[in-house]
Simulated scan of single mutants.
Amino acid sequence: MTDPLPHAAGDRRHTTLGSPVGDLTLVSDGAHLVGLYMTDQRHRPEETTFGPPADDVTPFAAAREQLAEYFAGERTAFDLPLAPAGSEFQRRVWAALLTIPYGHTWSYGELATRIGNPRASRAVGLANGRNPIGIVVPCHRVVGSGGSLTGYGGGLERKRLLLDLERAALAGA
Results as ranks from 00 to 15, higher is better:
A9D: 11
D11Q: 15
R13I: 04
T16P: 01
P20Y: 00
V21W: 09
G22K: 05
G22A: 08
D23T: 11
L24C: 09
L24K: 10
L24N: 09
T25N: 07
L26K: 03
V27L: 08
V27K: 01
L33S: 08
L33R: 03
L36D: 00
L36N: 00
Q41M: 13
H43K: 12
H43G: 00
P45L: 03
E46V: 05
T48F: 05
T49D: 10
T49L: 12
P53H: 06
A54H: 13
D55E: 13
V57G: 03
V57Y: 06
P59S: 09
A63T: 11
R64W: 10
R64G: 06
L67F: 05
A68F: 06
A68C: 07
E74M: 08
R75P: 00
R75F: 01
F78V: 05
P81I: 07
L82T: 00
L82M: 04
A85V: 01
A85H: 12
S87M: 01
E88H: 10
E88L: 12
Q90V: 00
V93S: 07
W94M: 07
W94G: 03
W94C: 04
W94L: 07
A95Q: 09
A96K: 11
L98Q: 15
T99R: 06
I100H: 05
T105E: 15
W106C: 03
W106V: 09
Y108N: 07
Y108W: 06
G109W: 03
E110V: 09
P118W: 00
A120D: 11
A123D: 08
A127E: 04
A127F: 01
N128Q: 15
N128K: 15
